[in-house]
Each structure stands twice: as structure tokens, then as C-alpha cells.
Design a protein around this nucleic acid. Structure first.
Lengths: 156, 156
DNA sequence: GGTAGTTAGTTGCTTGTTCAACTAACAGTG
DNA sequence: CACTGTTAGTTGAACAAGCAACTAACTACC
């Protein structure tokens, strides 16, 4: 199989994408840890729960929404449960399943963290882009997700 | 300070970007670990060295090119040195500095890993996008990098 | 030419992620 | 209704990343 290398334009875009992928998590984590004592992934878990009916989701469903593996999520939720931000209970309908539910303290934590987080996202990402670019970004990322996540696990 | 929330278009794009940032590292790491025994970050370090004059770079310069902190790079380079893919030597011009140099074995490792890696990048990212989208992605990521990396540490 | 401040890099420790192995429960089939 | 296979989730160990503290060397200034 012969290799088809990237042309200049492709390589330039790829290197920049890699840079963003490398830098963005640190920027998000730093602000949230400082201001809310949460990693971005923890925040995202709480935020997904906060938007779910009954503030409750099955672990599998939560893993899909947060793009995490089940083991990773399981560890994180256990730590969040230790901090009483989340509560875990066996699912009544399916004995194998576990429901994760956002506690009142967890809700308060999300509400408290959200404004600073959104401001940070604006400052570093959204406000830097024109509305047209936001649309392009949406299209491009949607396309990539189909390839990165072939089972289309992302919530519609 | 009142919060200016994201509108629907912004939120959609943001959530997808976060998903890509979460999923892409795993896709890159999995292929490279399986086929070459390297993480993507290790590969990228070796690749940056392979393109440098004398296959050598100062640690600081290498950290900039790989978007890594110095402590992180230091650990990774030590492990790469243990595997004899990289060699570290004090810089003659500046006693504080360290030069990292790609060994012949390191060069071979990059050369062996590159085709599979490029194919993977094509399959999951580049080939999914039109040339116009590649250009848009380049522009958007360049804009974000200015915000994420204000010291413009990225190599020009 | 000593002293203060900065820059380059490493190291230890704590934390988080991944991988593989495991348990338990459900679904389908003979 | 046992038996096979699959799905849901947890756990433990290995490994990687981030942070803070540290050493060493260079620069500049009085």
C-alpha cells in the first residue's frame, strides 16, 4: 500500500487542529479547576445530567453524551459521588444498569460554575469566530464526528 | 458581570468541537500504539525532531512545536531516551539548555510509523473534508490558536 | 565582580486515564 | 429451563500528565 502524503494545505490545517486539540483541554481545565474545583470533563458530566429528565441518566447514555469510555466515566462518577455531587442507584427496569442522578449540591455546582466557564469559552473560542465561521466549524466537526465516532453515539 | 450565554448555533458548534477534542486523541493513540508502539504525542515529538536541522532541537523549542509544557516534554523525552529513540546532550552554547537529538533508531521509528499514521489521519479527518473545508479549518484553527496560545508559540 | 532576578530544565508526588479482567444480569435458542 | 452469548458496569494495576519545588546557569546592574 503506497502512502498518499498530505499536501501543504492539508498539512497546515492538520497541524493546527492537533495544536488546538493539545491546548484546549488545558485552557478549559485550568479555569474550571481554579474557579469551581472541577475538571472540564467533570463539569461536562454534571452539565449533561443537569439537562436530562429527572437529572438522571444511565451510565451508558451518559458515557455517550460525554464521549467517554465506560471505565473512565465509572471512575469519575465514583469520585463525584464521594463529593456528593452525584448519586448512583441501580436501575429498576434493568438490573445490569446504573442510574446516575445529579444531587442538589451537584446542581448548585453546575449553576455556580457555568457563567465563568461560558465566559472562558467565549474568550478563547466563540468570540474569536465570525458567525459564518461558527457555522463552518459546526459543519466540519459534524463531518469529523461521523468518522471518529462511527456508531453515531453523539446525542442528536 | 452578567453572563452572555451561547446561542443555538454557537452551542451546537461548541459541543461538537468538544466531542472531537475528546475523541481524536484516542483515535490517534490507538492506531499508533498498536502499529508502532508510540503515543501520538511521542510520535509528534519524534516527527518534529526529524524535520529539524541536524535532527536536533532545544527542549524549549521542541516544547513549543509540540504545544507541550516543559515538564511534560521532559518526562516524555526521558522515556524516549530510555528506548534509545532520542539522545539528550547539554547545549554547548548555553549551559542551561539541553539539546534533544533523534537517533537513527528514532528516525527509523518515525519512518516506519508515518504511513500508517497518515493513512489514519486521512481516514478519520482529511479525506472527510472538501478542499474548501480544509481551508476553513485552517483559518478557524489559526484564529483559535491566537487565543489559546497568546504568546504565539507555534512555529510559523 | 558580587548579587538579584530570570531562564532552562529536571524531578517527585499526586491525580487521572487506560487496559484488561472480572461480575452480574439480560436475551435468545435448543 | 439450562446454555451460549451479549450487554452494563465496576475494579485494580500500569502508566501518563500536571503541578510545585528545586537546581543550575545565564544576564544585568550597582
Amino acid at each position: 500500500m503506497d502512502t498518499v502524503w498530505l499536501n501543504d494545505a492539508q498539512r497546515a490545517a492538520w497541524v493546527k487542529l492537533v495544536a488546538v486539540v493539545e491546548l484546549l483541554p488545558g485552557v478549559l481545565d485550568t479555569q474550571l479547576r481554579r474557579d469551581a474545583g472541577l475538571t472540564h470533563f467533570e463539569y461536562f458530566v454534571l452539565a449533561m445530567l443537569s439537562e436530562a429528565p429527572e437529572r438522571t441518566l444511565r451510565m451508558t447514555s451518559l458515557a455517550e453524551r460525554t464521549n467517554a469510555t465506560l471505565p473512565r466515566l465509572s471512575h469519575v462518577v465514583r469520585r463525584l459521588e464521594d463529593r456528593e455531587l452525584v448519586q448512583r442507584r441501580p436501575c429498576p427496569e434493568d438490573g445490569r444498569a446504573t442510574n446516575a442522578r445529579l444531587t442538589d449540591a451537584g446542581w448548585s455546582a453546575v449553576v455556580a460554575a457555568a457563567p465563568g466557564h461560558v465566559a472562558n469559552v467565549r474568550r478563547h473560542v466563540i468570540d474569536a469566530l465570525s458567525p459564518a465561521q461558527v457555522g463552518q466549524l459546526d459543519d466540519i466537526m459534524a463531518t469529523l464526528l461521523e468518522r471518529l465516532d462511527p456508531d453515531a453515539r453523539m446525542a442528536p
